[in-house]
């Protein structure tokens, strides 16, 4: 038996917004630790990893590990029926062929009950090696969203460069070029501020497909801050924390010299 009750149902709605356009369907793995899902886009350029730890839920029960193979378009349609302040409960049997979703309004005067049929998804789980990143940058998530959107007008590639105390985003195309630099702020505890941490103070610059960066920013409402981690010739990590008990992370393979 699996049952997970999420007081802040909007978290699930927001997380799915950040997933559904990248991954058609995925295995949502439920265990006593929580719920996790990983998947790649059809071109295998970006890996998306969602983690919802059991502490995120006010009630969580998972007697045996359960895999929920969910079509994300269908899941999203159902979640759109939930109000932002609804409590969402997910329920499934031990070897389920369907998952039950229950939405309760905040004042408990409306309940909606949905059943989503599960699908068998043949999908490999990838191991993500521990990496020492050359640069870790935290920026307001709305600022990152705006930069990605603005630079997409110039071309299909965005170059992210980190040097001491500064992160620079640039794009070049037929209509011209653009360069947006964010300087590190003094007080890094504030969500409105920018922080830049570097290993060995070595500047780092990588090129990425703007289309994918824009997909990632669909998760902006999950967190005030987004963390970018860069390492030469490695995938970029774009992380949105879900409070203290979850995260939505994207790994984007870089564009490299052919």
């Amino acid at each position: 038996m699996f049952e997970a009750r999420l007081l802040q149902g909007s978290i699930l709605k927001k997380a799915l917004e950040g997933i559904r356009e990248l991954i058609t369907s995925g295995n949502w793995e439920c265990s006593s630790a929580g719920i996790s899902m990983q998947g790649m886009d059809p071109s295998h350029v970006a890996l998306t990893v969602l983690m919802l730890q059991n502490d995120l839920f006010d009630q969580f029960r998972c007697d045996r590990n359960v895999t929920l193979g969910l079509n994300h378009a269908t899941f999203s349609k159902i979640l759109k029926c939930a109000a932002n302040d609804d409590i969402i409960t997910l329920k499934a049997e031990d070897q389920p062929d369907e998952c039950n979703l229950l939405f309760q309004s905040a004042n408990d005067d409306k309940t909606s009950d949905f059943i989503i049929k599960l699908t068998d998804i043949d999908q490999e789980t990838l191991g993500i090696p521990d990496t020492e990143y050359a640069a870790t940058v935290k920026v307001p998530s709305v600022e990152f969203q705006r930069i990605c959107r603005d630079l997409s007008q110039f071309g299909d590639t965005i170059i992210i460069s980190v040097k001491k105390g500064c992160v620079e985003f640039s794009g070049t195309g037929e209509i011209g070029s653009a360069k947006i630099a964010l300087k590190e702020s003094g007080n890094v505890d504030d969500d409105e501020k920018v922080s830049v941490e570097m290993d060995k103070d070595t500047p780092c610059s990588l090129s990425f497909a703007s289309r994918y960066l824009n997909y990632f920013t669909k998760a902006t409402s999950l967190s005030d801050t987004v963390t970018l981690q860069l390492c030469p010739e490695h995938p970029l990590v774009v992380s949105y924390d879900i409070g203290d008990n979850g995260s939505l992370k994207y790994y984007l393979a870089p564009k490299i010299e052919e």
Binding site: S43, G127, K255
Partner: peptide, 14 residues
């Protein structure tokens, strides 16, 4: 000329 790398070049199945 830049080419798009794939995730499989960096991460392997568990």
């Amino acid at each position: 000329m830049l080419g798009q790398a794939k995730i499989s070049a960096f991460f392997s199945p568990k």
